[in-house]
Write a protein that binds this DNA or RNA. Structure first.
Lengths: 355, 355
DNA sequence: TCGAGAGCGTGAAAGCTTTCAAATTTTGAA
DNA sequence: TTCAAAATTTGAAAGCTTTCACGCTCTCGA
């Protein structure tokens, strides 16, 4: 592989000039410029990213730390970030933490010496990201936190409007006539779980409803959690007529528990998820859900990070993306036998048919 | 951030000694060794991966090029590779090609100058990987090709036993009594599609059956493709009593088309997919499928690649992973009204219930 | 025609590590 | 105690690029 020295030789110019042509760091007169470019073309020369990074104290690497790419929510986030990174000439390094704080630290430590320009993180459980990324920021790397925020986070961030999304979903269910509404939240040490719960509570309060004892269940963001907590909920008296699951995995587990109890969704019980994953279209009934765009989340984060690489001192930004309530087949008015049954006025939206 | 020079100063030794202690490249007597280690500990020194890579002509980076992380098959592959890479001290750089040959080339070009130790690729459509990775191999990087192979591939590879998997699935359906069997293959320029079709054909031939005209449909590996081709198949006379879809996305599309035609799966028509994605458990009926482990695929590839980094001249290896037929609710004997109906002797396996 | 200043181009230093030949110290035997 | 051999340790070079101070060459005005 050719190096800059060889290009300089072939073009009959100095090393510095080659660098200036390649980086546009100084004006170079056309004839020289052309000779350099020709030499580059002839040899197929590509600058060493390592030497470049070593000299500039920064590489064209964008690092991304997420809980687990196997969770269907995250591939979209990663893809959004990779697309933006690729367009701007950056490569994406992907790290999974399994929500394990110590693994997050290991990744953070190991990545540092690659001098990434940017770092996008979905904090693990109990993350101390604010402290742990201090050294990155000191080294001039852009750190962006997404999806959920760690304690005391004061840097750039991209999140969604969790509270609003949950509020809308709950309000919709209430509008259908539901009164005995249950909620299954994700781990409440996570800010997104907290916010979704807040939105749910606000909708309840606004309609003068209260959450019956035991109607609020906290669990992990997965099917097993949703399954277990729904089993508990279904045994309660009165049985809830609607459940808001704070993500789709929980909702999926809930659906299984409902089916297993020989109940029917939505006739016996309504169910609404959160995230709007593709697979909510594949269940039967198709799952209603508060949609958010993981792709947009990742893309916005990458843009934010790479913007900051250029504009080091622009003010901190907190981007909040919108959610969209997608009503499908898993919600309906409460069963008629319920004493609180009432005619609904809420519109029944259907998602477009697949074609 | 401290550098080696500072460590050498603090420990009162030379640069070379620090390097030897850190890399175990030469014996260093205990007292010196300890002084170096102490200095490292005190300063929190971490060697620069860039300078190291520059000097050694190789970094601890494992690059991975896949079609699209949004396709539910690939996250498992990526995770398998990342886990192995992480364990061995490597970082994973992820690139999506969207099956676009030119994008594959762009990634290949851009990655080269980071000097990755290994490169794991799922070739894009019409990939010329054999030629395009020549420079990598010359530079000493380990290139491993997985899932499907490009033309003339003679390097390391990890694939699954596609033909055998399809053969088993087809044989099972035949054993249930099906005679009018259709197959929807993926793009036939891909080796995995070719092999799955071969397996299907072998099973048919072995039972003295033939594929009726139009009963073999080729399409893309996605829902839309499966949907479109199934619509065509359902209009044929006689209508097939069973369809082998050559991946789960196709099967999902097929299921939609079947539902839309007001037919019932499996009573009217049996359906079997390929890959065994998680979401095959979430459809109704739950989809039978030829399972393969994407995680294992990725993990084996990473191990193969990193092994080769150490053992540069060991013989080329082709790892072929096993598939496993998972029978769930989407298959049954053909409808009684069919003239060819017959009592089946094939066992009906059920997957374990979710718990 | 001369001088100043603008515009360009140059070469060396710096960034950090690995590696190798050479220098130094230690060891063991006489 | 001395010397050769073995074991350690050292220092400099190399790997490739960016950047900066400096010098050269025009250009333009006087």
């Amino acid at each position: 592989m050719a190096n800059m020295k060889k290009i300089a030789e072939i073009a009959g110019v100095s090393l510095g000039t080659v660098s200036h042509v390649l980086n546009g760091t100084a004006k170079v007169r056309e004839p020289l410029r052309k000779r350099v470019l020709d030499a580059v073309h002839v040899t197929g020369y590509q600058p060493s990213q390592l030497a470049r990074g070593l000299r500039r104290d920064k590489t064209n690497i964008l690092a991304m730390i997420i809980p687990d790419i196997l969770n269907p929510f995250f591939p979209g986030v990663v893809r959004g970030a990779e697309d933006v990174a690729f367009t701007k000439g950056y490569r994406l390094v992907l790290c999974n933490t399994d929500n394990d704080h110590s693994k997050e630290i290991m990744h953070l430590n190991a990545l540092r010496t690659y001098l990434p320009s940017g770092l996008i993180v979905i904090p693990s459980d109990f993350s101390e990201l604010t402290v742990q990324t201090e050294s990155y920021r000191r080294a001039g790397a852009a750190v962006v936190c997404i999806d959920r925020l760690p304690r005391n986070w004061d840097g750039d961030s991209v999140t969604i409007n969790n509270a609003e999304g949950a509020y809308e979903a709950a309000s919709y269910l209430i509008g259908l006539g539901h009164r005995e509404m249950a909620v299954i939240t994700g781990p409440l040490h996570l800010t997104n779980s907290q916010d979704r719960l807040k939105g749910f509570k606000r909708a309840m309060k606004q309609s003068g409803l209260e959450i019956l004892p035991g109607y609020m269940q906290e669990t992990t963001f997965d099917r097993a959690g949703g399954y277990a907590k729904t089993k508990i909920l279904l045994k309660m008296l009165p049985r809830p007529t609607a459940i808001l699951a704070c993500n789709d995995m929980i909702a999926l587990g809930a659906l299984m528990a409902i089916r297993e109890a020989r109940l029917h969704c939505p006739d016996d019980i309504s169910l609404c998820g959160f995230d709007g994953l593709d697979l909510t279209e594949m269940t039967s009934p198709q799952l209603s859900s508060v949609y958010q765009s993981p792709y947009q989340l990742g893309a916005a984060a990458a843009e934010l990070a790479l913007d900051r690489v250029e504009q080091k001192n622009s003010p901190v930004r907190h981007i909040v993306l919108k959610t969209e309530l997608r009503i499908r087949d898993s919600v309906a008015p409460p069963p008629k036998s319920e004493k609180n049954a009432q005619k609904t006025t809420a519109p029944k939206l259907r998602s477009a048919a697949y074609s």
